[in-house]
Amino acid sequence: MSEELGMREEPRGRLYRVTHRTVYEYDDDVTSSYGRGFLCPRDFPGQRRIDHELVVDPEPEDSSTGVDAFGNHDLYFHVTQTHRRLVVDAQSTVAVAAEQTSWANWDDWADWEDVRLRLAQEPLVRQYVIDLDPPEITDEVLRWAAPTFAARRPLVEVVAELTHRIYKELRYDPGSTTVATKVSEVLAQRSGVCQDFARLAIACLRGHGLAARYVSGYLLTNPPPGQPKLVGADATHAWAAVCFGEDRWLAFDPTNNQLVSDEYITCAWGRDYADVPPLRGVIYSEAKTSTIGVSVDVAEL
């Protein structure tokens, strides 16, 4: 499965080759395997997908691509060959330009209460304001967020402090959570991974009537000389974005305490992780054990 976009104008900025490999191995035969995911980078101002290719081994009997309700490119495949090893390789070429380089340079300094009033007039963003089911906006989350949401404070300052607090007060600890861990649990144990930190930020913003979305993608694997490697660069990454109205979104990364820059490649966005997992599926097998290996490389061209 591949997609070539031809001669389309690229944003000024940096060009990347993204390689994402997922390997599933089982201790018994798998007779049927269904997969669905979001491995194709998006097109939007500041990012241009030049090409994308997906290879599944064994070759699927059936496969397709489409666009979901959030505008993401999703994939589907069905492997019917008996197998004990399944490999999904996704490769993309993407051009990225930095839209925002510092908090101070953001051009909208409206108070967060005023932004909330704006959003009330924009029904299309309501899906990013409403809490999830089961709810993530608990009393504990609201109490923790309250000091940051001071009255008549510019939203950009709120988001900057929220990003910093998550970075300073919670510990990055791979293995301490799963995709089923609740935001309240992450806050209680003060640890998690990038997906958890993005979801905590989103719950805090939604708890105050603001629109926030979950974003999945990648980070530059090897930074320029002299710059530290960012957390999450060796796997898929996740961050959040907040809406200022009129489809203007500010993307930020609590895991690394910074705005999203031209070192980030966006694959998909939605209300939560469950909307945009990189890959998930169902198998038919008597296998008792299985392993999954994921490797990601983002190389600048």
Rank of each mutant, 00 (worst) to 15 (best):
E25V: 05
R248P: 00
A287V: 09
W103C: 09
A287W: 02
W109V: 14
L301M: 13
K229E: 15
A95E: 08
I130W: 06
G209L: 09
Y284C: 11
L117R: 15
V159E: 09
S176N: 08
P135G: 07
N72E: 10
V215Q: 01
Y26R: 08
R42C: 10
A201Q: 04
E140S: 05
G71K: 04
Q100N: 12
T65L: 10
D297H: 05
A201I: 03
A240F: 02
S216V: 13
R12N: 10
F197A: 00
V115R: 05
R280M: 10
H73E: 12
C267S: 13
Y264W: 11
A120E: 15
V18D: 03
L86K: 00
V282A: 08
T266C: 13
V186Y: 01
D29S: 11
Q91L: 09
R36E: 14
V276S: 02
E286N: 12
T236A: 07
G270M: 06
A198Q: 00
D89S: 10
V67H: 04
L230P: 00
A97R: 09
A211D: 07
P174K: 12
S191E: 15
A188K: 13
A151G: 02
R42S: 15
T291F: 07
A110N: 07
T148S: 08
G270N: 06
H73W: 01
